[in-house]
Design a protein around this nucleic acid. Structure first.
Length: 853
RNA sequence: GCCGAAGUGGUGGAAUGGCAGACACGACGGACUUAAAAUCCGUUGCCCAAAAGGCGUGAGGGUUCGAGUCCCUCCUUCGGCACCA
């Protein structure tokens, strides 16, 4: 491999300096310090067999510059790294090559670590964590046990004044009629409230991964987001986490954090809170009733029918009463066979069957026929909706198909009461009509009014509804944290006691998943056998493991105290460091990982383990490095750029600076060898010119260069703070372009190298030592800064009626009067314009004149 | 449909309401070289032969001495959510 393209011997520099930095443990971060703290977090990678991706290089390099800058500014900066090694890719790969995932994972970690170290990233390796290390997952399991041992008291007022808190199970009030029935009844009652609970329910199942997957991991196309296989639904008994208990806090606390608006809205869309009311209508001729949920009760005078979902409880429990039972049963069994995806694919034509029963509208007294239709989802609200065809597009479609009455109850300014489809919606700021006591009110007031009436008369109750579902937390895999639960015939599910943690993953002869979907751990007969923590009798271990999110929910807390064997984290240490000051990551994690980790962190907050309500003060979303063809890099497209090859060819400094220079932080940017060449030329010039300047430094100081260096230090500092790494590098280039042909003093050379150091740590260190320094440049303070050069003269444009007509040289601090006088002296032809017009002088920027007429 | 982001040269992209196109790539011309690579110098938004001049930040309005930037109305692209009641 030829180095002739690079004018410095980067291989020699890298091996020399990285060895020395490691030996001196240059980037070790003390847990406590007089300095202000800054916690810089990047998403930790799963170490796949393919090695580091170019995207990792870019993201970690950018935040490395950020960390190095703040270190030089006097902060105690924590920039840690670890391994999210329980990822599915590692497991799938191990299965493919038929090896123990432990071994494969350990090898991958070594490759990743070597690659990261070669890039000169300033991680504190003493704090390295690995989610597959039993000393780490001991605490992942501990969190699970705590979830099992707590319930959510939504009425509890916390110390911070907020409402709702996880409380120990012992505090849960057991109704007397339950405790009268004995121990088993009490246990069953408690199980209904635990934050981790086992439930048999239809869950998505991935036939490729042979495992259940969370709703959140299924794409809109109905495929598993990890492997793109279409998912099925199966009934499985699974551990669930009651994330829904935290739904309000997960939405409301977004006001406490600085995330991009798009991220906040993705989070709250995902949780999908809607506020409305339930209404219970009597079923005509029976003593039964039907309960709907609606967010638009002000339209209730326009309600003309009721529709229940095929899988709703109402249909299940009333089917024998329906006059049209036969037709209903047929429809229900047909639609239950269809998947959600199928139903949606069948298009907009609504189908349904009349049950033969009627509900009575409280307000109009009219009979509303009760239908069953699959456009209503059993899992949403009460699984039953009230049809208001005048103001809902779906209801309108259904009414049209079934020939049902349409009543208009809200009109816009045009007062048009016709029933065309386009008008079948709520009119913003509309006026209520045809609605008795609501007539003439605007829609918002009418909603409040009718909700109060509904509650007063006992027809229903205000309620919040969420799209968010509880989190399926079981996977039928091998490569995950064992769920620390045992099953006892007498005592039911019991948590493993603290001194038994961690429950280690047993080694197996065959790690493959069972064809029937059973966990590979089912085969660990000896491991499965255990004793019940409660009665001491024989018990069996849970064989499902946790999903790959489990370890990444809380890893940023463990970095603070990675070797603590007595607590998840030391109380004082976590108080000193949290929250994370900036969390850099990808857009693919803005819903799931962010939501899950915020949930678990809030739970830890309720336990008193962590000191703040939110884990991440600032979240930023970096862009993606695309292949040279502008598409996402992938093996199958053959457009993958391998970091090892590029680093071997150009060296770490050039690669680091190129990936930052290629475009803005948040941009998705195509790889370009040509642009990389520009950076290579720049660093060659830096090396060549600085070596020359060291050989013959200036004898007397050119203060202009000194001032320009101070301006440069300021500009780059503020650019780095704003994550504008591309323009920082442009500023370095501009400076060298302007001053490369003259000699600098040693002091000036030193300052320039200090500013360069965060970007090109190896070359800067080398030239620094050639300058005669024995300590590392990376322990230097950031140089003196100056906001702008306000000495000397400057050329400014003169704008007349919006057009540049002249240029004048002015002193930077000259007054408006003097500038105008100077202008007229040099440009007498504009004297009249100035005298009769409006004149604005923006110091150092522009002189603007607007002539009259 | 709802929510969010973004539209600037041949390309990636700069620009606290103040000289649009910084910086870099590419292209063209030149120097060096037997030649290539590497390096160095010059030109490079568009129109016009050039100068002068004019036109230019998706479109159209507006605010302002001054708008890529702020406001209104559109268009287009990308991302997220979606028969969510």
């Amino acid at each position: 491999m030829s180095h002739s393209l690079v004018s410095f011997d980067f291989q020699q520099l890298q091996s020399k300096w990285s060895a020395l930095w490691l030996q001196k443990n240059l980037y070790a971060v003390p847990s406590s310090s007089e300095k202000p703290k800054k916690y810089v977090l990047v998403e930790f990678p799963y170490p796949s067999a393919a090695g580091l991706h170019m995207g990792h290089c870019r993201n970690y390099s950018m935040m490395d510059v950020y960390s190095r800058y703040f270190r030089m500014k006097g902060f105690n900066v924590l920039y840690p790294m670890g391994w999210d090694a329980f990822g599915l890719p590692t497991y799938n790969y191990a299965m493919k090559v038929k090896r123990d995932p432990h071994e494969v994972s350990a090898e991958n970690v070594l490759v990743f670590k070597r690659q990261l170290q070669e890039l000169g990233l300033s991680f504190d390796w003493d704090r390295e964590i690995d989610t597959t290390d039993p000393q780490y997952y001991k605490w992942t399991q501990w969190i699970f046990v705590q979830l099992f041992n707590h319930y959510y008291n939504a009425e509890y007022t916390r110390e911070d004044g907020g409402k709702g808190m996880a409380r120990p199970m012992e505090e849960l009030q057991i109704p007397p009629e339950v405790s009268d029935e004995g121990e088993n009844a009490v246990r069953e009652y408690q199980d209904l409230y635990r934050l981790a609970y086992k439930a048999k329910m239809p869950v998505y199942w991935c036939p490729f991964c042979k495992s259940g997957v969370a709703n959140e991991e299924v794409t809109a196309e109905g495929t598993h987001e990890r492997c793109d296989t279409p998912v099925e639904k199966r009934e499985l008994e699974q551990w669930m986490l009651r994330i829904t208990a935290y739904a309000d806090r997960l939405i409301d606390d977004l006001t406490m954090v600085d995330y991009p608006l798009s991220v906040k809205s993705a989070q709250s869309n995902w949780i999908g809170r809607s506020e409305g009311i339930t209404i219970t209508y009597p079923v005509k001729g029976t003593d039964h009733s039907v309960t709907v949920f609606t967010t638009k009760p002000e339209t209730n005078f326009g309600a003309t029918f009721i529709v229940a979902a095929p899988d709703s409880n109402f249909i299940k429990t009333h089917s024998d009463l329906f006059p049209n039972k036969e037709a209903v049963d047929k429809y229900v069994s047909e639609s239950l066979r269809k998947s959600d995806i199928q139903r949606l694919a069948e298009g907009k034509t609504k189908t349904g069957v009349f049950t033969g029963m009627y509900a009575v509208n409280h307000f109009t007294g009219k009979d509303m026929p009760i239908y069953v239709s699959d456009f209503v989802l059993g899992s949403v609200g009460t699984g039953i909706v009230v049809g208001v065809p005048g103001h809902d597009l779906r209801d309108f479609d259904f009414a049209t198909t079934m020939g049902l009455e349409v009543v208009r109850v809200i009109v816009g300014e045009d007062k048009d009461e016709s029933f065309i489809k386009e008008k079948a919606q709520i009119i913003q700021e509309g006026t209520v009509v045809n609605s008795d006591f609501l007539n003439g009110m605007n829609a918002d007031d009418a909603r409040e009014k009718i909700m109060s009436v509904i509650e007063e008369k006992g027809y229903g109750k205000r309620q919040k509804n969420y799209k968010l579902r509880d989190w399926v937390f079981s996977r039928q895999h091998y490569w995950g944290e064992p769920t620390p639960m045992v099953y006892c015939e007498h005592c039911g599910w019991q948590a493993v006691s603290f001194n038994e943690l961690p429950v280690e993953l047993p080694r197996l002869d065959d790690y493959a998943m069972g064809e029937d979907g059973s966990s590979p751990l089912e085969k660990a007969e000896e491991w499965k056998k255990t004793t019940c923590p409660s009665c001491g009798g024989a018990a069996t271990r849970e064989t499902d493991v946790m999903p790959n999110w489990a370890g990444s929910n809380w890893y940023y807390v463990r970095y603070l105290d990675p070797k603590n064997d007595n607590e998840l984290v030391d109380k004082k240490v976590v108080k000193d460091w949290m929250p994370v000051d900036i969390y850099d990551g990808g857009s693919e994690h803005v819903t799931l990982h962010l939501l899950y980790s915020r949930f678990i962190y809030k739970f830890l907050y309720d336990l008193g383990t962590v000191p703040t309500q939110e884990p991440y003060k600032v979240r930023r979303i970096h862009g993606v490095v695309l292949g040279p063809d502008g598409k996402r890099m992938s093996k199958s497209k053959g457009n993958v750029i391998n970091p090892d090859e590029i680093v071997a060819k150009y060296g770490a400094d050039i690669v680091r600076m190129y990936v930052m220079f290629m475009g803005p932080y948040e941009g998705n940017l195509a790889w370009s060898d040509e642009t990389l060449n520009g950076v290579r030329r720049f660093l060659n010039r830096v090396s060549d010119r600085i070596v020359e300047k060291i050989a013959s430094p200036a004898v007397s100081e050119d203060t202009k260069i000194t001032i320009q260096l101070e301006v440069l230090a300021h500009r780059i500092g503020s650019d780095i703070t704003a994550l504008k790494f591309n323009t920082s590098i442009a500023a370095l280039m501009e400076f060298l372009n302007a001053h490369e042909s003259v000699s600098w003093t040693n002091k000036q050379i030193a300052t320039f190298l200090t500013i360069l150091a965060p970007f090109a740590p190896f070359l800067a260190e080398e030239l620094w030592s050639q300058l005669g320094n024995s300590e590392s440049i990376h322990l230097e303070q950031w140089p003196k800064t100056r906001e702008n050069d306000d000495s000397g003269t400057i050329e400014i444009p003169v704008q007349i009626n919006g057009k540049i007509k002249a240029r004048i040289h002015v002193e930077k601090n000259m007054s408006q009067e003097n500038v105008i006088a100077l202008f007229i002296k040099e440009n007498a032809q504009f004297a009249d314009a100035v005298a009769g017009g409006k004149v604005v002088y923006v110091p150092g920027k522009i002189l603007s004149i607007t002539a009259q007429g």
